[in-house]
């Protein structure tokens, strides 16, 4: 029981999962749906790369066949990158395998031959540790493990897709203009912002910091003042900047989930009892409308 099967369309996560397997003296095997990706994955230290070739452009449509493949291969675990597509595929495979699954892990280790998974629940309030004895599926975000190197062979396997869901059109979301996920400085506005026009004040601060603007779910979804890609939280963006400044953000637990890996958290809010101060390194209790110009001037 030591063959780990790995899939992620994000090759950095696939590489890290191969690294995890190697570090734990397990045998990593990688599956991919792209011939180009297969070439790249073949240098990352796996035992074998399986290029799964089929007609459907939707990876999720192969879930049933992948579960058959994993059974035939006697895989011990299926580890998948925690992207939107990866999570979907992983849960379908777990469904067809009728096995356990742990999603979006914050930690993953082996103790003897049990897989110990750690994840955050209740919107960020609680850390749960769970163990799996048998075959299981996990989804893992990037950044947890170190990749390794080493060449291997590519095997091509024809796979039949479930074609009930048909792709009509795919449009890339331009990443230009939204560097939030990788920004080192992020300024976030919450419902303490009174008017949409006041965003210009916030943007002034963002500019001197050469950072990115972000917001809470309320600003994006209720008030529509910023696009949904800009909201931080468990159902939105999860970021890890060097500096995160919260302006008029109350600090609901679901929001805090998205900033917990920030190096330094600064809170500025009128209400000294706002939960955000509990999660902050530095804070000022006061009116953001007075503080932002002072801060912008000083930084200029």
């Amino acid at each position: 029981m030591s063959d780990i099967y790995i899939y992620s369309e994000r090759l950095d996560i696939a590489a890290e999962l191969i690294g995890f397997a190697r570090q734990n003296h397990k045998e990593p095997y990688v599956v991919t749906f792209s011939a180009v990706a297969a070439e790249e994955l073949a240098n990352l230290g796996a035992n074998k790369v399986f290029y799964l070739k089929g007609e459907s452009p939707l990876v999720e449509n192969y879930a049933k066949q992948i579960s058959k493949f994993l059974k035939e291969q006697a895989a011990s675990h299926f580890m998948v990158g925690a992207t939107a597509r990866g999570r979907d595929l992983a849960a379908r495979v777990a469904g067809y395998m009728d096995c356990g699954m742990a999603s979006d892990l914050s930690g993953l280790t082996y103790v003897d031959d049990e897989l110990i998974c750690e994840r955050i629940i209740y919107g960020g309030a609680v850390r749960q540790k769970e163990a799996f004895k048998d075959f299981c599926v996990v989804t893992v975000p990037g950044g947890l493990f170190e990749p390794v190197q080493g060449d291997c062979e590519i095997f091509t396997i024809d796979l039949k897709a479930d074609e009930r869901v048909v792709l009509v059109e795919r449009t890339e979301i331009p990443s230009r203009g939204n560097d939030l996920p990788t920004a080192s400085k992020v300024v976030c506005v919450g419902l303490g912002l009174a008017e949409e026009e006041d965003l210009s004040l916030v943007n002034g601060l963002v500019d001197v910091l050469e950072g990115e603007i972000a917001c809470t779910r309320g600003i994006a979804e209720e008030r529509h003042w910023l696009p949904v890609e800009r909201y931080i939280g468990i159902s939105g963006a999860v970021i890890k900047p060097e500096l995160y400044i919260a302006l008029g953000v109350s600090g609901q637990i679901q929001h805090v989930y998205g900033i917990r890996e920030s190096k330094i958290i600064v809170a500025i809010d009128k209400n000294d009892k706002a939960p955000i101060f509990r999660y902050a390194d530095y804070g000022i209790v006061g009116d953001m409308y007075e503080i932002i110009p002072l801060l912008t001037d000083l930084l200029n």
Partner: peptide
């Protein structure tokens, strides 16, 4: 019956400096 075995539930604590300039 679940396939996982929950070992532990613990509050997630963020170690922060909590310095307020007053």
């Amino acid at each position: 019956n679940p396939k996982n075995q929950v070992l532990d539930l613990q509050a997630y604590v963020m170690e922060r400096k909590n310095i307020v300039f007053a």
